Simulated scan of single mutants.
Amino acid sequence: MPVTNPWLAGPAPTTRLDRHRLEERILNLLSSQNMCVLATSGPDGPLATPVRYFHLDFALVFTAAATSPKMRNIAADPRVSLGVFAPLVGQASSRGAQLFGRAQVLLPGDPAREHYWPAVRWQSDHVERSRSLDEPPADPLVVVEADRIVYTEHWLRRDGYAPRQFWRRAT
């Protein structure tokens, strides 16, 4: 019987990508998707929330209603994980990343917000909701600078690399 992707059979390779190539692959994934699952922990236990994100290098940013459960959880414990993934068609297309870091909430007027705000493409939401483009949203901006990332891409096996790669922020 013919096999579509014979390189998926057998044990996975263990070779690591060099840092530059791994970073390029991670940034490609972050640039080609716009939804993630945010995992927080709160008094009722874990909460996984789909969130539309924007990215600036290895930081994921999103706006959120100040009173939402995810914001309540972040206020209590800023340690979060975000899962970003590409649509799965089969094992060969498996591609995603788990980002780990601390969520920082930036309110309007916070000087740090100015660094991240240009990455947020809020205009399309405003047009969709018939809101004026003269008034940007005043919602809190949540920024998660990744401390570490677990990147998975099974296509890497084809070239002899481990399908799971590990990235840490340079110190």
Rank of each mutant, 00 (worst) to 15 (best):
M1L: 12
M1C: 10
V3C: 06
T4C: 07
N5C: 13
P6F: 12
P6M: 13
L8N: 11
L8K: 10
G10N: 04
P13S: 12
T14W: 15
T14C: 08
T15R: 09
T15M: 14
T15Q: 12
R16E: 15
R16H: 15
R16S: 12
D18H: 10
R19C: 04
R19H: 12
R21S: 11
E24F: 11
E24T: 06
I26F: 09
L29N: 14
S41A: 11
G45V: 04
L47S: 03
T49D: 13
V51W: 13
V51R: 07
V51K: 10
R52G: 13
R52S: 11
D57I: 02
F58H: 03
A59L: 06
F62Q: 02
T63I: 12
A64D: 14
A65N: 05
K70R: 15
K70H: 13
K70Y: 09
A75I: 03
A76I: 05
P78F: 00
R79Y: 02
S81K: 01
V84I: 11
A86C: 02
V89M: 10
V89L: 08
V89Y: 14
R95P: 02
A97F: 02
A97T: 01
Q98V: 07
R102W: 00
A103K: 00
Q104A: 13
V105P: 06
L106W: 07
L106F: 08
A112Q: 14
W117L: 12
R121H: 14
Q123K: 10
Q123P: 11
Q123D: 12
H126V: 04
E128V: 07
R129M: 08
S130M: 11
L133Y: 10
D134I: 09
D139A: 05
P140F: 15
V144G: 00
V144M: 00
A146D: 02
A146W: 05
D147V: 00
D147M: 00
I149N: 01
I149H: 03
E153L: 07
H154S: 14
W155H: 11
R157Y: 15
R158P: 01
G160Y: 02
Y161R: 05
F166A: 01
W167P: 00
T171I: 12
